[in-house]
Computed example of a mutant assay.
Amino acid sequence: MVPPDPNMRVSNAEREAIIARLHAATEEGRLDLQEFADRSREAYEARTYGEVERLLADLPETTGTLATTTPAPAAAAGPAELRLNPKASSVERKGDWLVPRKLAVDAKASSVKLDCRHAKINSTQVEIDLNLIASSVELVLPAGAYAVDENIDVVASSVENKASYQGVDGIRFVLYGRMKISSVTVRHERRFLWWRW
């Protein structure tokens, strides 16, 4: 691929892509928050490719992978089921984790966050069996995925599904089970400027 002319003007979409790479590098620990803020400001002020080239010069071409990294085995299908049983605790799964076909969450007086945005999902459907007492569950879905929550027995609890089916055939998350004095929130990634959570 021929590198762009350093005198060529940078578009807004290209600036956003640069900010996204800087943000990913910050999450990986390659940049600290001050470096991220400084480089982001410079990216927004830049006019040409020559001005933004140095902002990415010390970062890998594709964040998270180095040329010397040994690839993971292709047969990593993972377990068919994952059970989480927190008691008066906080549990979080995020980043590059393997989502099985079924998750069982048996929580008492606990909070559970399942962030699937960057997770490895090897099936078209993920079942989540809930057994909650005085607990909260937050499920963050990857882009294109949706959730179905029609078979949950609810007692003094709330279910907020902000990622229901919208006509896109992505990964389907099926929530079922029972809840007492608990809450479940299902959502997609939130965005504000270059922040994602």
Rank of each mutant, 00 (worst) to 15 (best):
N12A: 15
A74D: 09
R9F: 04
P4W: 04
I121K: 00
E14R: 04
T185E: 09
D129I: 11
A25Q: 00
A104L: 12
L82Y: 08
I171Q: 01
I152H: 07
L82C: 09
L56G: 02
D169Q: 15
V105A: 06
Y165Q: 07
K162P: 01
F192N: 06
A20D: 15
I181T: 14
I133P: 01
N122C: 12
K180M: 14
L139Q: 00
R178T: 11
T124K: 14
L130W: 03
R93F: 01
P71T: 13
N7L: 15
P3W: 06
L193V: 13
F173I: 11
R21G: 05
A13F: 12
S136A: 09
G78C: 02
G167F: 13
G95T: 01
E42C: 09
A24N: 11
D115Y: 01
S90C: 10
A57V: 09
R41Q: 13
R47F: 08
L175W: 00
E27T: 07
S89F: 02
E53Q: 10
I19W: 05
L130N: 06
G177K: 01
R172K: 15
A109Y: 07
P71I: 12
H188R: 06
Q125E: 14
S123E: 12
I121T: 09
W194M: 08
T68K: 14
A24I: 04
E92L: 10
E189K: 05
